[in-house]
Design a protein around this nucleic acid. Structure first.
Lengths: 318, 318
DNA sequence: GCCGCGCGATGCCACAAGCGAATGTCTAGC
DNA sequence: GCTAGACATTCGCTTGTGGCATCGCGCGGC
């Protein structure tokens, strides 16, 4: 058994060598190849020599008096070299596309009421601007969305401060501060009320909420205004909630983003915010992780969408 | 219009960078990847950094507290990097095969009588020994074969000295010196002659030849022996020639390589060679051109085949 | 038949890239 | 707060790489 000269390790070589090799193969001349590549003839000579030493262990060209011609080994190598050069070129092109948001993918999530008005506008603008980005969408509540963001299953999430989850682990882009409305049935005593109402006026009302406890929901606002609302009905779905309100079974809070889609037999009264605005809406990106370029573009689209939605406070908060 | 940072030139990069990148992507760790590659961690760090600078213009990995994770750009790059690495590996393997005559191709040609006995033996041995070489065969006359050799359409040709073509432009491997027979009909007066005959005895016979003029054919021998044979019939095909001879229409010269396949009603008389042997048979390879490795192996097979053919002079000529 | 010309190889030099080893920085976990 | 793990960075040195000039070698013109 003789010692193997090339112990099954892939040789390492520069793509420059392969490009030089292909040009020489095409033109049949080191000198011409050098001109097309913008190098000197000696450089090409050495590059081919390097390739012959590293990969072929023998000549790839026959050096003839006028120019060169491929050997058998060279002829075998050509398609492989082309594969490599084309793969590198293709990779560069695809990465360029990703940088220019003309490719790649964006996985984002949003909470339900953001999906009602904000996300569709942003989505339409984004698709128009970056048609080649593959989009995938999820719906969920803020805590769950943030978890999926941390786990790397999402690139971006539209979340709100409601829920009190710690947001400092994320890169937040403030979108808007959402004002609140209180929804009452059209024949409720306050239905014709002019101007913002204090929630305290409804301290004795029956409340309809998505959760039996007000903490961590929109009803946090009521707690901050000094009373503990009595939750008479637990209803999750917004359409169902409207039904309860219209039937006079109680009142409920409506975020501004959902205000556009209210049925006519329900009246919306703006809530007087005495402290901080009810809740802020953010686009969140996992901090420290380099953002998908499409995520930055999507934040821009969300920002623009905000300006097209009435009934929102575009807060000055940083 | 901003200046383009990457003006459509393919970046040049080392395959080492891509291998490092793939190992890091697989293991999610620079350190582990470095161990599997047999380098230090700093080397891998810089290789990935080089790739990021050359190709991606941005990070390919998110550097997390524990290990790393692919970015969007990195995820896009993986299949391209795999393509490149596999192409390089495949090229190395195929070139190795060519070196070991376990692949590639061999295009050879031979003159017709060599195809009768010599080539089939060599071919069988070669195929058994190098089954993965793709073979292509041509038949022709020596001058035509040499032309195709020069033009690069053949890798090897089995040729003879007959025809007087200049052979010094080729790398010649002497195979054998062929003795000649004269074929006469079984009832010819010389049919029972003992020992070699002088061609002069047949100076007045009708000759059968492949060409109306004796120059450049086997009948050159007659010219050297001092008479000009009268060509009565021009017959190219060897089987047809035998028919003419058997019918008593004339005599003809038979090279030793064709002696085995003579019909019983034709008698073969060895020709007394007074000068140089009748003709030499060579394996010819274009000089200066690096031979297909398979060509060298085929020469060996031809040499071995010679030893299995009787009725030939294995000449001592260099 | 001699000389010039074209083409590839090579020696030389300067410069940049890449390596290993050691050190720095950041984070998680105890 | 301290340690351990993981990646980045720095330093000195080696190696590789390109440009320039030159050499060797066929071929073709005169």
């Amino acid at each position: 058994m003789t010692a193997m000269p090339n112990p099954h390790h892939d040789p390492d070589l520069s793509t420059v060598w392969l490009r030089a090799f292909l040009q020489v193969a095409r033109h049949g001349s080191f000198t011409v190849a050098a001109r097309t590549l913008g190098w000197t003839q000696s450089a090409v000579s050495r590059q081919v020599a390097a390739l012959e030493a590293a990969l072929a262990d023998g000549p790839l060209f026959d050096r003839l008096p006028r120019g060169v011609r491929l050997t058998e080994a060279g002829r075998v190598l050509v398609p492989y070299a082309e594969t490599v050069v084309e793969a590198v070129h293709g990779a560069a092109r695809r990465l360029q596309e990703v940088r220019e948001v003309a490719g790649g993918r964006l996985r984002f999530g949003a909470f339900a009421t953001a999906d009602a008005a904000l996300v569709p506008h942003a989505l339409a603008a984004f698709r128009a601007r970056h048609p080649r980005v593959r989009l995938s969408r999820e719906e969920g509540f803020t805590p769950g969305l943030l978890d999926r963001l941390s786990a790397g299953h999402l690139d971006l999430a539209v979340v709100s401060t409601t829920g009190g989850a710690p947001l400092d682990a994320y890169e937040l882009h403030h979108l808007l501060d959402e004002s609140l409305y209180v929804a009452v049935s059209a024949d409720h005593p306050l239905a014709g009320h002019e101007g913002p109402v204090r929630l305290g006026l409804l301290a004795d009302a029956d409340w309809i909420s998505g959760s039996p406890r007000p903490e961590g929901t929109l009803l946090d606002t009521a707690l901050r205004q000094g009373f503990r609302p009595r939750v008479a009905h637990v209803v999750g779905e917004w359409t169902a909630k409207q039904g309860y309100v219209a039937a006079g079974l109680g009142v409920t809070l409506v975020p501004a983003l959902a205000a556009e889609s209210v049925r006519p037999d329900v009246a919306l009264l703006p809530v007087l915010d005495e402290g901080a605005p009810a809740r802020a809406v953010y686009a969140a990106i996992a901090r420290g992780r380099s953002p998908a370029p499409a995520a930055q573009a999507f934040v821009t689209a969300l920002r623009e969408a905000v300006t097209r939605i009435p009934a929102c406070l575009n807060g000055p908060m940083a």
